[in-house]
């Protein structure tokens, strides 16, 4: 599991994270939800080593480390596909960079293309396909990292409702079929309730965990479930209170 304790990050006088604690269970789906600008993306930047922490500990599978950048795959809101590479070449980037066997990697990528409905588009350039397909290709690339921990920073927020729903199903597939441990940021409470095993509601700066919900019901879930409706109302109220402070 990913264990974060007493994590502190300051930018000058601005304290973004102060003694922040987080536990992401292995092969679980943890979702962080909080107000805009509360420091969620900074947390990911610290976790991946893009920015250094001021204090605190990070450990993965019990081993303390400075960051988990080399242990995690990262998918962002922007698909970050390289416009000059075909979809297949984009998906193969992690394999190419890490020096994997390219024949095996290509076989794996083509399998994922089939699984994610991208067959027939392997040679297309990113500029030639829709936003939803680009994001699916980014998901394939994320899977090609061959890392157990997957960090998802609002990966679906730029998509329309229908595409978002289909990609939510793919994220569930990611967890169940590929045995990944997922940590995701979202602004969408319904999305969090549909996907997560654990939802953490976050405060404004400096970011703290206000509340934590464990959702043990089977997936896929229905938003009409009375328990989910109750949690959703509660979380919304909590976030509104947080914004008023």
């Amino acid at each position: 599991m990913l264990q974060v304790s007493r994590l502190t990050k300051r930018f000058g006088d601005l304290s973004v994270l102060e003694d922040f604690d987080l536990t992401v269970p292995r092969k679980g789906f943890t979702i962080l939800i909080g107000p805009s600008g509360c420091g969620k993306s900074t947390l990911f930047n610290v976790l991946t080593g893009v920015v250094s922490k001021n204090d605190g500990e990070i450990s993965w599978l019990g081993k303390p480390m400075l960051h988990v950048g080399k242990k995690s795959a990262y998918m962002q809101q922007k698909d970050l596909l390289l416009p000059w590479f075909s979809l297949l070449d984009n998906a193969l980037l992690p394999a190419r960079i890490s020096g994997q066997d390219m024949i095996a990697a290509t076989g794996k990528a083509l399998g994922l293309f089939k699984r994610l409905g991208l067959v027939g588009f392997e040679t297309y350039l990113p500029g030639e396909i829709s936003g939803g397909m680009r994001q699916r290709c980014a998901l394939v690339r994320t899977l090609m990292f061959e890392r157990e921990l997957v960090l998802l920073d609002e990966p679906l927020s730029a998509l329309d409702a229908i595409t978002r729903r289909s990609l939510q199903s793919l994220l569930l597939l990611l967890q169940s079929e590929f045995d990944k441990s997922l940590l995701m940021i979202t602004h969408d409470i319904e999305e969090a309730l549909l996907l997560a095993d654990q939802v953490l509601v976050l405060s404004r700066l400096p970011m703290k965990v206000l509340e934590q919900f464990s959702l043990n019901g089977p997936k896929p879930r229905r938003l009409s479930d009375p328990l989910l409706i109750e949690i959703k109302e509660h979380v919304l109220q909590r976030l509104q209170e947080e914004l008023k402070i």
Binding site: G49, G69, K70, Y74, L80, L82, S98
Partner: peptide, 12 residues
């Protein structure tokens, strides 16, 4: 910067 970070995380 986001692309640079992506490559950094891929270990390039």
């Amino acid at each position: 910067q986001e692309y640079r970070v992506l490559f950094q995380l891929m270990g390039a």
